[in-house]
Computed example of a mutant assay.
Amino acid sequence: MVRDDQLRAVVFDLDDTLLPEWKYVRSAYRAVAQSLFGQTSQAREAERWLWDRFVGGQHAGSLNALLEWSGRDEPVDVLLDIYRSHTPQVRLAPNVLRTLQELRTSGLRIGLISDGPLMTQRRKVEALGLGQLIDEICLTDVWGREYWKPHDRAYRNLESLWHLGGPQLAYVGDNLTKDFVAANALGWRTVCLRSRRQVHAARRAGPGGRPEVRVTSWKALDVLLQNWSRGEDGGPAGPDRGR
């Protein structure tokens, strides 16, 4: 018998949750470098320069910096459009793919809520094949930037579509400033997934933004969600209850 508080659906964030942001950034840098220099050693040098800058913690202003470094005079808006609209050379990690498949096999519904420029996020979804793995995909930029997280429109939209609410849903994300605010307010279960090189890992949670649980591996996440779907507690996944 399914209890009212038994987990029925899991909703994921995209950037730095399903897809490490650094993988997308590296793909975009390659596209930008090749747009300037073609398939040449100079393009590879430009890509390495951008990547070294990113790894060194310089995430902002990369395209302007590239133009200054290379002496090129292309409009930065052209490079930004290439960055955002290129077809990313990315794929899901095997453990991520396996977890999504196992969750669906267990009968859970799977959703996605993601912010960001609409074309960019659609290209990521297509490249990762998420249309075949996820039941409902909510790209918040469809409604405009004012509906990006922490706005609750996408969360309420999934509640309405699935006729579920509260602890029947879980949100898995990484960004403490926005991912969990609406989910916590609606009574969802919330899980912060930590992994290496996350861009927003150092950010602190704002009011109402602390997750119910933190995990550091996809294996631990799978155990936690499967336990919740059976009406059990978090088990070995290691709950951090201090919201």
Rank of each mutant, 00 (worst) to 15 (best):
L161I: 07
V142N: 08
I110D: 06
G116N: 10
E159R: 13
R210T: 10
S85R: 15
A185M: 05
D15P: 09
R53E: 05
V10I: 09
T190K: 11
A183K: 03
V142L: 10
R204N: 14
E126C: 05
Q6N: 10
S229C: 09
P236R: 15
G111Y: 06
I110F: 01
W22R: 13
N95H: 14
R26E: 14
N95K: 08
R210L: 12
Q42E: 14
G131M: 09
R30K: 13
H59K: 13
V55P: 11
T190R: 03
L169E: 01
Q58C: 08
G56W: 01
Q39W: 06
R122T: 05
L158F: 09
A185H: 05
N184I: 03
V11N: 00
R53L: 12
G206T: 05
A46T: 01
R84F: 02
W148T: 00
R241G: 04
V78S: 11
L100D: 00
V215P: 04
L92F: 08
L139R: 08
R3T: 09
R44K: 14
D141A: 15
L164I: 03
R3A: 14
V55Q: 15
L67D: 01
H59G: 10
A202Q: 09
E146K: 15
G111C: 12
E47V: 12
Q198R: 10
